[in-house]
Design a protein around this nucleic acid. Structure first.
Lengths: 193, 193
DNA sequence: CCCATTGTGTATCAATCGGTATATAAGACT
DNA sequence: AGTCTTATATACCGATTGATACACAATGGG
């Protein structure tokens, strides 16, 4: 019951995501958001809570956006294929011209004023969760002898995410697809065996 | 002539640098700055121009801060020593508890509102300048046969700065010194020869 | 039809943003 | 001393920040 919502929440969320992705959490104002989403301020607050809650919903939306290539990489048949899937998948992701430059999870809220602490902690948490999932995958890879006995899953996972962050920063700085692929190719030379 | 300045410009600039370093350009307000620098708003504007000019002067100050280990690395006797100097130098830099977390040149102004475009372009420019210097160093390294003939100086330089950016993001996320060093060690495994 | 419920639009809130006008204070120079 | 120049301090500017009060519109249930 009640008056039906006149806008598409998912479409509005996508608009918000692209804006946060481009300008970051604090660089995006409510006026920016309502303009892009095509709704009024009260509608935004009624539908999404407030700016912070909207950003959290956007993070979920972003996770759905990126889960395809990340989940695909984690399901790769062996450790090297997983590493390649992650790194070259990130290259393709950052080379897709339909996407804003860089990675929302990296520069969406990396630093900022004290008011945005909760937002920074959330993105930081999600970044470390990705590292954790990669670490777990590499641990089981070692038991399956997909990795040399001396290889350190945590160290390799740390390196992988560091390269992903580096690719994201370079992409946000306007790196071309070929630049990203070159970085990826050199990085893969570090992979054991 | 005229009334003498009552504060130490260099000390005030250092305070400003540490604040921008921690909160980023747009995350740092003028009130934050004047509070930390211990001066009033008109004094700040008389001495440094405006927020944007102050940030540019802070970037110069930051370059002086980081030039030690970077210049040292670029002057290393061979290409591998340069790479190690850069990567492990960055680890040490980010592990120094006297420094704010992360890298001002990376997260000081990576994204933001349209008003800060000039600031983002400047940090982006300085980042690419570093890559250029590394590339030049690697080109002369190849002529001196410090690198295999097949090695690509531009690709290696791109990889190096990507790892530096990755280390910066991880450091900004609270990575411990040992985490950074592990990333560095794996990265160096990608180095040719 | 009438009412309860919920979304929308206007107009506005206090707080903060970067930036200054104005007056005064403190030194150097003649 | 008197004057010129520059720094400091107070108080303020218009604009924008995130967030709402209020009135009204649109639906479903009785």
């Amino acid at each position: 019951m009640g008056r039906p919502r006149e806008f598409d929440m998912e479409a509005a969320l996508t608009k918000a995501m692209r804006l946060f992705w481009r300008k970051g959490y604090e660089g995006t104002s409510l006026s920016d958001l309502t303009d892009a989403m095509g709704i009024t301020r009260p509608s935004l607050y009624a539908a999404f809570g407030n700016k912070e809650e909207l950003f959290f919903k956007v993070l979920d939306r972003y996770d759905r956006e990126t889960s395809a290539f990340i989940q695909g990489a984690l399901n790769a048949p062996n450790a090297r294929a997983m590493a390649e899937g992650l790194i070259f998948g990130a290259c393709a992701f950052h080379s897709d011209k339909r996407n804003p430059a860089g990675c929302l999870m990296v520069h969406g809220a990396l630093v900022g004023s004290d008011e945005s602490l909760a937002v920074r902690r959330e993105t930081s948490l999600r970044r470390s969760e990705l590292k954790g999932r990669i670490t777990q995958r590499l641990k089981q890879a070692r038991t399956k002898h997909e990795l040399p006995q001396g290889a350190d899953p945590a160290a390799l996972a740390g390196f992988l995410v560091a390269v992903l962050r580096g690719l994201a920063v370079e992409a946000a700085s306007g790196a071309r697809p070929v630049d990203l692929k070159r970085i990826a190719a050199v990085a893969m030379a570090a992979w054991p065996e």
